[in-house]
């Protein structure tokens, strides 16, 4: 995680242009630039800026009591619990501070993330569930009818799903189900989870809007799950205990349900949880096209306005989730397959 922070910071700061000028746009005066530089600490050498950034991110941070310094704890910067102070420095415990958005009048990045991340989460989880259920089902069929036409068409469908760019499938789905078949499906081309009602007062949940984006987002994981499920099931079918089960005269359904499925699911579960984090990133296109009010759409907006803190924050949070999920996946793996022991 520390490495990720470092890489991201240097990517955005060393190579990038002048952030102060980026923020103020075309018509800035030298004084304005100077003031902004001071506020965000851009006038300091890069090493110091980096330390400031780490200080902002770290839950335990040091702050100067001198109001001229960058590290001075301004009112409203963040709520912090004072731990102790030595001389001119105060040490506090706080929630990691991701700085403020350049373009949204100093709105905190953490607040932006808190508003958008849950929506993306809902989308990604629904997509994973769809992919998982459908994928396991199709994978089983594919393995049962190995090398027959049903298997072959499922295989081709899955390659198809892997090679379609998500923004293209999103456009096609939005157009076909939201526009051409609008009369029958009653789905909208765009829409978010929470929408203002007709009076513009209340926010209410529209589950209907979840259907199309989550299907589109699930296409690629679905393709992967089908492949994995098929291959691992075929491998399990060759095992002795399945032959025993067959010899006992169990029906094919019983064999799969009681014997094969649990063992064949291992690689699928690991892969799919690994996919989850990259789906948060892959949601960029889907959210953008469906107008889903999530992290991905926020990233696109920030890209267009060059709102660096928002992009940095989003990349950081996704990387963090990725790491957490990977640890989680290892734990699931141990639970599913007792042969693997914790090292």
């Amino acid at each position: 995680m520390f490495g990720v922070v470092t890489v991201i910071f240097f990517l955005f700061n060393v190579l990038g242009g002048d952030p102060a000028k980026m923020m103020l746009g075309q018509n800035q005066t030298a004084e304005q630039v100077k003031a902004v530089k001071k506020k965000y600490g851009f006038d300091k050498p890069i090493k110091t800026q980096y330390l400031y950034y780490l200080n902002d991110l770290s839950p335990l941070s040091f702050h100067s009591n001198n109001s001229e310094d960058y590290t001075f704890l301004r009112q409203g910067k963040y709520t912090a619990i004072k731990v102790f102070s030595i001389g001119n420095t105060t040490t506090v415990i706080k929630f990691p501070y991701l700085r403020e958005s350049f373009t949204k009048q100093g709105k905190k990045v953490s607040q932006v993330l808190a508003e958008t991340l849950p929506n993306t989460f809902v989308l990604a989880i629904t997509a994973i569930i769809i992919a998982m259920i459908l994928g396991v089902f199709l994978g089983i069929i594919s393995a049962l009818y190995k090398d027959r036409w049903l298997d072959k068409s499922i295989q081709i469908l899955s390659t198809f799903g892997m090679s379609i760019p998500s923004f293209f499938s999103a456009i096609l789905f939005a157009w076909f189900f939201g526009y051409v078949l609008h009369k029958y499906t009653n789905l909208e081309m765009t829409g978010s989870l929470y929408e203002l009602d007709d009076f513009g007062e209340d926010m209410h949940i529209k589950w209907k809007n979840l259907i199309l984006p989550s299907i589109v987002l699930g296409i690629r994981p679905l393709a992967v799950v089908i492949q994995l499920m098929r291959n691992s099931l075929l491998e399990v079918f060759n095992q002795d205990y399945i032959r025993t089960a067959r010899a006992k005269g169990l029906s094919e359904f019983q064999i799969i349900k009681k014997h094969a499925l649990k063992n064949a699911l291992n690689p699928v579960v690991t892969a799919i949880s690994g996919w989850f984090a990259s789906m948060l990133a892959g949601a960029v296109f889907v959210e953008y096209i469906f107008g889903w009010n999530g992290l991905g759409k926020e990233i696109v907006n920030a890209l267009n306005t060059l709102d660096l803190p928002v992009i940095m924050g989003s990349v950081l949070i996704i990387a963090l989730l990725f790491i957490i999920i990977n640890i989680f996946v290892d734990l699931i793996y141990i639970w599913l397959d007792p042969k693997v022991k914790l090292e």
Binding site: I8, L11, L15, A277, I311, V315, F322, I323
Partner: peptide, 15 residues
């Protein structure tokens, strides 16, 4: 641990 798409976005922003 940084998703490919986001890393590419970061690099293209920097370059």
């Amino acid at each position: 641990s940084i998703p490919t798409l986001l890393l590419v976005i970061a690099i293209t922003l920097a370059l």
